[in-house]
Write a protein that binds this DNA or RNA. Structure first.
Length: 548
RNA sequence: GGUCCGUUGGAGAAGCGGUUUAACUCACAUGCCUUUCACGCAUGCAUACACGGGUUCGAAUCCCGUACGGGCUACCA
């Protein structure tokens, strides 16, 4: 068979040879030990925590080694492509402050190894596919989906492995004349690699994360170019990561299964193999109690955008992911609480081997601790950024009177305390917790009956003086308590609870609910100071009226 | 079905043949502090090495089975 002739028949428009591209994309000038990594999402309109997890690992390895981190868009699946998805991906990574050195994050692409959209690299792939055909290592296949299904069915009946391989690969044997006839009839075809492997052969492959793993040779004549002329993931991976000179292919472990295909492709193409690092997948517990991979369809709450909408601080999310990524990160962070995560020495061999469960509690703990380090200015900026992007209609309400907001935040953050409070987790939760300064709604119920509550409140408001300091204010609460059979001193109450209806704590609670609507708040006296004399008194009087 | 990866308290996870009566973080609980909450401090809980064999003086650590979980098995990535 004249393979060169076949190649020319199949790819008449391809002018360049492969060398053209090697010349076009020269060797990167990088310092010793610098790694080149990429993240290569497909624009299906959904990115979740797992994507950020991988991206963070990529980014750290690349940047801490003085290398390159780039973004490539794998838009080879025309059917699943979602409009606007690329923009969503880019803006999400931007929000989480994952920065690329080159790639598709800019318009136009930035970097010398582009284009970074696979769709635009069609000709490159075809050039290499053509060479494989010319070398007799790949061939056109005209089988329809229907035919392939039939083959699969037969294989199942015979209890043989399914797929297009060996004796089942009928298009391997097409003669040049037969192919020409089919081409003249404008029959659709794909290009398949002609596998020479055997699944009998096993070998050990070193994965940067998993260590030694056994792999079997591939024996499938995998499709490398689809009928639309666009490559499959496998082929694009081999070509792109070679031409773009990726040194470590870091990807999810769902790719482990097709690693044999990639190994054979690299060999066939005569390419040097990159190092591979297969990360574990993030899991979640199902309603049924079973662990499962995060799924884009079933777990919309794990979409990255969800965290942005709720206003999780991007850095806090990254801190959490780092604890999952490298087991020694957490202890390092504990020892160096003020160091930036980029100062941590990230390494692939400290990554987990099994799928980690996503733990919202832990994320919250980390967020709280992180936000508890913020200055007033930083907190204001954080909220401002959130409100102006997610809650525009509330901007006026919060930021018309910044001094008021500052007082609220100072209290909520515990800036006046010896130890800071840790109430704040994420922006929307913060707004909710300070809502009591903007609206008066009763959310919690009184522990005593309405009549008692009314009495306590009435007596309290009669003596209330806005200019009292905290201790004078509290003394008045104590007086009201004592007059109504509540212990004024906690120690006394604890010693002899049976002598009292309750304690000053209970009386405080009634006042607290009247003023804030809630049982639990930061210091009540301060809240009343912030609210202002008029508002504070009015809230209590309104509550008294409601109790009638 | 085939194949690959995994399995340490509720969650993450260290330990990879002998100072292991198995670290650390989160969660949870209790106490102290305290007018509530939050913070902080202290203590505790969970009574964790999937199971069964083997190798060894000795195994969470090595080997072999089994079970369970997950991935892949597309002209999807």
């Amino acid at each position: 068979m004249d393979y060169q002739k076949l190649a020319d028949m199949l790819f008449p428009k391809i002018k360049h040879d492969c060398q053209y591209y090697f010349d076009k994309y020269p060797k990167r000038e990088l310092p010793e030990g610098a790694e080149v990594l990429r993240i290569a999402p497909s624009p299906t309109g959904f990115i979740h925590l797992g994507n950020l997890y991988g991206a963070l690992a990529d980014e750290r390895i690349a940047h801490q080694s003085g290398g390159v981190f780039y973004l490539r868009i794998e838009d080879t699946d025309t059917k699943r492509k979602v409009p606007g998805a690329v923009e969503a991906i880019i803006s999400c990574f931007d929000y989480f402050q994952i920065y690329f050195d080159e790639g598709a994050h800019h318009q136009p692409d930035e970097g010398n190894y582009g284009p970074y959209y696979q769709k635009q690299r069609k000709e490159i792939y075809q050039t290499f596919a053509k060479r494989l055909v010319a070398e007799g290592k790949a061939y056109p296949c005209f089988c329809s989906g229907k035919q392939l299904n039939e083959i699969r069915k037969q294989q199942k009946d015979l209890n043989e492995a399914t797929g297009y391989y060996g004796k089942w690969a009928s298009c391997r044997n097409l003669s040049l004349e037969e192919i020409k006839t089919l081409l003249d009839k404008k029959e659709k075809f794909v290009i398949r690699m002609k596998s020479t492997g055997s699944i009998e052969n096993q070998s050990i492959f070193y994965d940067e994360i998993k260590g030694d793993i056994t792999v079997r040779e591939n024996n499938q004549d995998v499709v490398i170019i689809k009928t639309d002329g666009i490559p499959t993931y496998h082929f694009a991976h081999a070509i792109d990561d070679t031409l773009m000179q990726t040194t470590i292919v870091l990807r999810g472990e769902e790719w482990l299964g097709t690693l044999p295909v990639h190994l054979e492709l690299f060999k066939m193409l005569g390419f040097k193999l990159p190092r591979y690092a297969h990360t574990t997948v993030l899991m979640k517990i199902d309603e049924t109690g079973t662990k499962r991979k995060l799924s884009k369809r079933k777990d919309p709450e794990l979409a990255l955008d969800y965290y942005r909408q709720l206003g999780y601080h991007p850095y806090a999310v990254k801190l959490y992911l780092m604890t999952l990524l490298n087991w020694n990160f957490e202890q390092w962070h504990l020892k160096n609480p003020d160091a930036h995560l980029e100062e941590f020495k990230f390494s692939l061999d400290k990554m987990g081997q099994s799928g980690a469960l996503f733990d919202l509690d832990k994320l919250h703990n980390i967020s709280k601790t992180y936000l508890a380090k913020f200055s007033l200015e930083e907190m204001k900026d954080f909220l401002k950024a959130y409100v102006s992007s997610q809650k525009k209609e509330k901007y006026e309400m919060y930021f018309a009177d910044e001094e008021y907001l500052e007082q609220i935040l100072t209290l909520g953050m515990g800036l006046n305390l010896k130890k800071r409070r840790k109430d704040y987790i994420y922006a929307s939760q913060i707004l909710e917790s300070i809502d009591l300064f903007y609206h008066h709604n009763r959310e919690d119920e009184f522990i005593c009956d309405n009549k008692t509550a009314k009495t306590l409140l009435t007596q309290f408001i009669e003596t209330y003086d806005y200019t009292d300091d905290n201790s004078a204010w509290f003394d008045k609460v104590k007086i009201v308590s004592a007059e109504n059979g509540y212990a004024a001193e906690m120690k006394e109450y604890r010693a002899n609870p049976e002598n009292y209806r309750g304690s000053v704590a209970d009386v405080s609670e009634v006042i607290r609910i009247a003023v804030t609507g809630r049982k639990n708040t930061p210091d009540l006296w301060t809240i009343m100071q912030i609210l202002g004399e008029k508002e504070a008194i009015q809230r209590i009087n309104n509550t008294i009226k409601e109790l009638d």
